[in-house]
Simulated assay, not measured.
Amino acid sequence: MKEAVAVSTGDLSGVTWRKSSRSNGASNANCVEVAFTGPAVAVRDSKNPEAATLAFPAVQWSFFLRHLGA
């Protein structure tokens, strides 16, 4: 198992948060939003955007996306 890597996202006030275009409708309450911050990808709960934000190295996020449907 890989160990966690500390990733700094810095100030996230100026980033553009995005969520899936498929999140329209009743399931909209259960979405996450992502923001691309250069070397990291920030992830937050769309219902509670002021809560804690997770950050992943962009390389690991790309790996995750490639293997979602595998």
Score class of each variant (00 low, 15 high):
Cys31Met: 04
Pro39His: 07
Ala29Trp: 00
Pro49Ser: 09
Val41Pro: 00
Val7Ile: 13
Ala55Phe: 01
Asp11His: 09
Ala42Gln: 01
Val41Ala: 01
Ala40Gly: 05
Val41Cys: 06
Asp45Leu: 03
Asn24Gly: 10
Phe63Met: 12
Ser21His: 08
Pro57Leu: 06
His67Arg: 12
Ala58Val: 10
Leu12Phe: 15
Val15His: 04
Pro57Asp: 10
Ser20Thr: 15
Phe36Gln: 01
Ser62Gln: 15
Ala42Asp: 01
Ala26Glu: 05
Ser8Phe: 14
Thr16Asn: 10
Ser62Arg: 13
Ala40Glu: 00
Val15Ser: 03
Pro49Phe: 07
Phe36Ile: 02
Glu33Tyr: 00
Phe56Met: 11
Val15Thr: 08
Val15Arg: 04
Ser8Trp: 13
Glu3Asn: 14
Ala40Ile: 03
Thr9Val: 14
Thr37Ile: 11
Leu65Ala: 07
Ser21Tyr: 05
Leu65Ser: 14
Gly25Ile: 06
Ala35Thr: 07
Lys19Met: 11
Asn24Gln: 08
Val41Lys: 04
Asn30Pro: 00
Thr37Arg: 02
Pro39Arg: 06
Asn24Pro: 00
Trp61Val: 03
Asn48Leu: 06
Ala4Asn: 15
Asp45Gly: 04
Thr53Asp: 02
Met1Glu: 10
Asp11Gln: 11
Ser8Gly: 15
Gly25Val: 03
Ala51Cys: 07
Leu65Thr: 11
Ser23Pro: 08
Ala70Val: 09
Ala42Ser: 06
Ala26Gly: 10
Leu12Met: 15
Leu54Lys: 03
Asp11Cys: 11
Arg44Val: 00
Ser27Ile: 10
Ala55Lys: 00
Ala35His: 04
Ala6Asp: 13
Ala55Gln: 00
Ala6Ser: 14
Lys47Arg: 13
Arg66Trp: 15
Gln60Pro: 06
Asn48Gln: 08
Lys47His: 14
Lys2Glu: 05
Arg22Gly: 10
Asn28Ile: 05
Gly69Met: 13
Thr9Ile: 12
Thr16Leu: 08
Arg18Ile: 10
Met1Lys: 07
Val5Gly: 02
Gly14Leu: 09
Gly10His: 12
Arg22Phe: 14
Gln60Ser: 15
Phe36Glu: 01
Gln60Asn: 11
Arg18Glu: 15
Ala70Tyr: 12
Trp61Asn: 02
His67Asn: 15
Gln60Ile: 07
Trp17His: 13
Asp11Lys: 12
Ala26Asn: 06
Asn24Tyr: 07
Trp17Ile: 12
Asn30Gly: 01
Leu54Thr: 00
Ser46Lys: 04
Phe64Ala: 10
Ser62Cys: 09
Asn24Cys: 05
Ala6Glu: 15
Lys19Arg: 15
Ala35Phe: 02
Gly14Ser: 12
Val59Pro: 05
Glu50Gln: 13
Met1Asn: 13
Ala52His: 11
Pro39Thr: 04
Gln60Lys: 12
Lys19Pro: 02
Phe64Lys: 08
Ala58Met: 08
Arg18Leu: 14
Leu12Thr: 15
Asn30Leu: 02
Val41Gln: 03
Lys2Leu: 11
Trp61Phe: 14
Gly25Met: 02
Pro39Cys: 03
Val41Gly: 00
Ser21Phe: 06
Trp61Cys: 01
Asn30Asp: 03
Arg44Ser: 04
Gly10Asn: 13
Asp11Val: 13
Leu68Thr: 09
Asn28Thr: 04
Lys47Pro: 01
Ser62Asp: 11
Arg66Pro: 07
His67Met: 12
Arg22Trp: 08
Asn30Arg: 01
Ala42Glu: 01
Ala40Gln: 00
Gln60Met: 15
Thr37Ala: 05
Asp11Trp: 14
Ala58Asn: 06
Val15Phe: 04
Gly69Trp: 13
